[in-house]
Simulated scan of single mutants.
Amino acid sequence: MKVNGKVIVVTGAGSGMGRALSLQLIKEGARVAGIDINEEGLRETRDLTGKASAAMSTHVVDITDRERVEALPAELIALHGAVDGIINNAGIIQPFVPIKDLAYDRIERIFNINLYGTLYMVKSFLPALLERPEAHIVNISSMGGFIPFPGQSFYGASKAAVKLLTEGLYAELKDSNVKVTVVHPGAVNTNITKNSNVEMRSDVSAEEQASMTLSAEKAAEIILNGMKADKYRVMVGKDARFLDLFYRFSPKRAVDFITKKMAQMAKAS
């Protein structure tokens, strides 16, 4: 789906990939309804649009609040005239701890934001999207959604659920006007750890960290190119592409490889 002239809803628009996606969409002629729980972050994103600020509306919404999300389509259609697409980008990671050590309240928060937030957005906006001449749903999973990372098992499980939800949605909507894309980003330089209230211990400097990860802007470019090409599946970054191939070729060896790498990183931190 071409984005020029379209109205696209972006969750997590207050920072990171959501901010980069919003800015690039506006640059390409779309209007954006930015959704985030962080009002200040949304304001900063809108300020960065400069003279194009009229192309972005901002909405402080907790996507785990189903009733609030269900009210969004009518609100945004009244404001913009239509909604042509949604990009479910908002998400959090978990503290790097084993399954046995993570408290249930943290587990529930991970699933409520990553899975149920995405589910509420899809269920709420789908009827309106089906009425458009063409529309698109983009759900952001993770490379952790197809291969496990020790210490991120609940995060991975939530993103694996997003993967299967999106693939099922694609199958159901295959002959409709609504295109569906699942995205698996690798390591992207965002502030997801801060937004997730997760502390990271590492001897790696900010400069080194940036060199080891994909910029949010480049990730957003890859995602939007996939959306515009109506791709079924988008891998973001060399690490995601490599692990996807490795895992499909030999799942056990791929998991052993990741486990060894994670242990080395933990030892060095």
Rank of each mutant, 00 (worst) to 15 (best):
G145V: 04
V32C: 08
G16F: 03
E67D: 15
R106A: 10
K6W: 01
E217V: 12
K218M: 10
P73A: 00
E67L: 11
L164H: 15
S57N: 00
N112M: 07
K159L: 09
K179T: 08
I35E: 01
K231S: 12
G50T: 01
T166L: 15
F146M: 02
A157H: 05
G168Y: 04
V183F: 14
T166D: 11
G186S: 12
P133C: 09
S124K: 09
G156S: 08
D203Q: 13
T45S: 04
P73K: 00
A33W: 00
A219V: 14
G29Y: 01
F257T: 14
G29N: 02
T118D: 04
A157L: 06
D239Y: 09
R132Q: 15
Q209H: 07
N114F: 10
D84Y: 03
R248A: 05
A206R: 13
V61D: 02
V204H: 03
D84G: 06
G145Q: 03
I223D: 08
K159I: 09
F96A: 15
M56N: 02
E217A: 11
M235F: 12
I192K: 11
L79R: 15
M235V: 03
L224P: 05
V182H: 14
I110H: 03
Y247G: 06
I35C: 02
R132I: 00
R201A: 05
V10S: 05
R19C: 04
Q209Y: 09
D84S: 05
E70N: 04
V97T: 15
F154P: 00
R233Y: 04
I137N: 04
E199P: 00
R66G: 00
A240S: 15
D62A: 02
L72I: 01
L243N: 10
A254P: 09
R241S: 14
A171E: 15
